[in-house]
Design a protein around this nucleic acid. Sequence first.
DNA 1: TCTGGGGTCCTAGGACCC
DNA 2: TCTGGGGTCCTAGGACCC
Length: 441
Amino acid sequence: MRATASILHLDLDAFFAAVEQRDKPSLRGRPVIVGGTGGRGVVATASYEARTFGVRSAMSTREARARCPHAAFLSGRFHAYRASSRLVMSALREVSPLVEPLSLDEAFVDLAAADLPDLSLDTVTQVAEDLRARVHEVTGGLTATVGVASSKFMAKVASELDKPDGLTVVAPGTELELLWPMHVRVIPGVGPATVERLRRDGIHTVADLARASEEEVVRLLGKAHGHGLHRLAHGLDNRAVVPEREAKSVSVEDTYSEDVTDRLLMEGLLARQAGTVARRLATARQSGRTVTIKVRLHDFTTLSRSSTLDSPTDDAQVIARTARRLLGEVDTTGGVRLLGVGVSGLADWIQEGLFGDEVEEEAPISLDAAPPSRRPAWAPGSDVVHIEHGPGWVWGSGRGVVTVRFETAETGPGPVRSFSLDDPELTLLEHGSDHEDAPAD
DNA sequence: TCTGGGGTCCTAGGACCC
DNA sequence: TCTGGGGTCCTAGGACCC
């Protein structure tokens, strides 16, 4: 909570649907619904025209069709959404270097890091209006709703108040009089289950929540959630705007139009998903140790099984093999409606920055350009090794295992594989055997 | 023939280690 | 011979967000 209204939250209005209406004039003024169009689809975004018929996000497409049969139902063009999103994020970064995207259509901007004469209400209001106009301009007509306040929480609450195409600035000091009459549902993190738990205890408004003792809220909702919500109810929020966040997992899941009952087919579908996950990991130059499968049975029961490997991988075969083994632990009699594969525990083995600038760049690392290392043996990124048929970089090490990414300037990033430290195939190519220097920085 | 897909964070219990 | 306690890792599930 700051003394100035210097955190801005921007939300693009009915984003996916608005992009479709922008790109296809015949859709303008008409109800447009973007989402899964198959028998088991749900609505991702409904245009405001569709919302007047009661169509909402996350509603099944079947129900949306019943409510609004004349709407245009579209399955979505994500490259177009990403392109517009990038334009918006760039526009935000013109205002302040501290921009935290929350999704394709939402971001926080820290105005305290912007180059402004002051942070008075007049100034931030003008900045917000200019920004909304700029977004409209760079996207070719999309509108945004903006909230500006003294914290992330209040900025987000404020941006909900004047949708679409609006602006709300909350003057510092007036937060609680705005917040307390509202329903607890306005607090991000309060969903249906939490609303119900609080309701049973007679807590409906934010003021009710603030009046309750912290002990009581913690008893109802658990330590972290209870403590956090109780603070928010008092308007207390010191979270900073954080521009870059490391991904913690990569996953793919698919709901099938008909339940899958054939075990071999399930294995094939998992293997294909493993390939997609592996490709995304390689693109992000990451690997992870924990492989998780997700299985949704015919009756919507959802299960997960996971297995943590000795060393991180981005190898499609390894992920597929693990996924198949995990599927073996699940009774799929009766069929499954969804299968998914994910890898988490990313970057555990990669010390960010050990590669220096090189890790930030997409360009393949030349083995010839290997920097003389001053780090202990087998530190991630420190050594070039030779295993079996080719050279590679040490990617991670520990527990008697060294993990290597095979990579050359010619081939670019290759697969990640692991070897036991006493594997005779493993030879240190560069970097002598005494490593007494302390790690740099 | 209700109920997507991509994520994040939290909890709770058991294993294991010191 | 009646039995510690703290810390960390792993696993499964749940709530929530967009």
